[in-house]
Computed example of a mutant assay.
Amino acid sequence: MMDIKIRAVNKDDKSRWLELFADYITFYNSKLTDQQFELTWQRINSDFNINCLVAELDSKVVGFTHYIWRPDTWEEQDFCYLEDLYTDPKVRGKGVGRALIKAVEDIAIAKGSKRLYWTTAPDNELARTLYDKIAITNRVEYKIYLNK
């Protein structure tokens, strides 16, 4: 089994994070300005409500996730929205995505959140293969909301 280390992003990760985030944006056939990339980087390295975890294999960052907290009108505790999840294509199928999701789940449970959720494109079959294997736990619900 691969030794995957999940940790909070730090300022030394900027160039690798930028490379992976740019690949993620390209994967979705989208474009961001350099200013938006920089704004996102500044936000995840501040008290702004965007958090980032990275995954390491052999001391190299190979994936990331961004997640945010959002209030809910029915619950006292915020829900956790996993906004972005991306792994280097060279390490797909090695548990990196699952480890990143599990780390966010653990954070959400520790905060008392009752829901962890995310969206994906209906045609993102590779990601959906992983997501479809992740079941509802006793405290956190996993869902896929498909755009129809």
Rank of each mutant, 00 (worst) to 15 (best):
Met1Ile: 14
Met2Leu: 14
Asp3Pro: 10
Asp3Glu: 15
Ile4Leu: 10
Ile4Phe: 07
Ile4Arg: 03
Lys5Arg: 15
Lys11Met: 12
Asp12Trp: 12
Asp12Phe: 11
Asp13Ala: 13
Lys14Ile: 03
Lys14Asn: 06
Arg16Glu: 04
Trp17Phe: 14
Leu18Gly: 01
Ala22Tyr: 03
Ala22Thr: 14
Tyr24His: 11
Ile25Trp: 00
Thr26Trp: 00
Ser30Arg: 09
Lys31Phe: 08
Lys31Val: 15
Lys31Ala: 13
Leu32Lys: 08
Leu32Pro: 01
Thr33Met: 00
Thr33Val: 04
Asp34His: 04
Asp34Asn: 04
Gln36Tyr: 02
Thr40Gln: 10
Arg43Met: 11
Arg43Leu: 08
Arg43Cys: 05
Asn45Arg: 05
Asn45Lys: 00
Ser46Lys: 09
Asp47His: 09
Asn49Glu: 10
Cys52Met: 12
Leu53Arg: 05
Leu53Ile: 05
Glu56Pro: 11
Val61Ser: 00
Val61Gln: 03
Val62His: 06
Gly63Pro: 09
Thr65Val: 12
Thr65Arg: 01
Thr65Ile: 00
Thr65Trp: 01
Ile68Val: 13
Ile68His: 13
Trp69Ser: 01
Thr73Trp: 07
Trp74Asn: 06
Trp74Arg: 03
Glu75Tyr: 06
Glu75Lys: 04
Glu75Ser: 15
Glu76Ala: 15
Asp78Trp: 11
Asp78Ser: 14
Phe79Tyr: 11
Cys80Trp: 01
Tyr81Leu: 09
Tyr81Thr: 02
Glu83Gln: 15
Asp84Arg: 01
Leu85Asn: 02
Tyr86Glu: 08
Pro89His: 01
Pro89Cys: 07
Pro89Arg: 07
Val91Asp: 04
Gly93Trp: 12
Lys94Thr: 14
Val96Met: 11
Gly97Val: 02
Arg98His: 13
Ala99Met: 07
Ala99Gln: 13
Ile101Pro: 00
Lys102Trp: 11
Ala103Cys: 07
Glu105Asn: 10
Glu105Ile: 03
Asp106Asn: 15
Ala108Met: 03
Ala110Trp: 11
Lys111Val: 05
Lys111Arg: 14
Gly112Tyr: 08
Ser113Lys: 05
Lys114Glu: 10
Arg115Val: 11
Tyr117His: 05
Trp118Phe: 15
Trp118Tyr: 08
Thr119Gln: 13
Thr119Met: 12
Thr120Asp: 08
Thr120Val: 09
Pro122Leu: 07
Pro122Ala: 10
Asp123Val: 12
Thr129His: 14
Leu130Gly: 07
Tyr131Met: 06
Tyr131Ala: 11
Tyr131Pro: 01
Asp132His: 15
Ile134Ser: 02
Ile134Tyr: 14
Ile134Phe: 12
Asn138Ala: 15
Asn138Ile: 11
Val140Asn: 06
Val140Pro: 00
Glu141Arg: 09
Ile144His: 10
Asn147Ser: 13
Lys148Val: 12
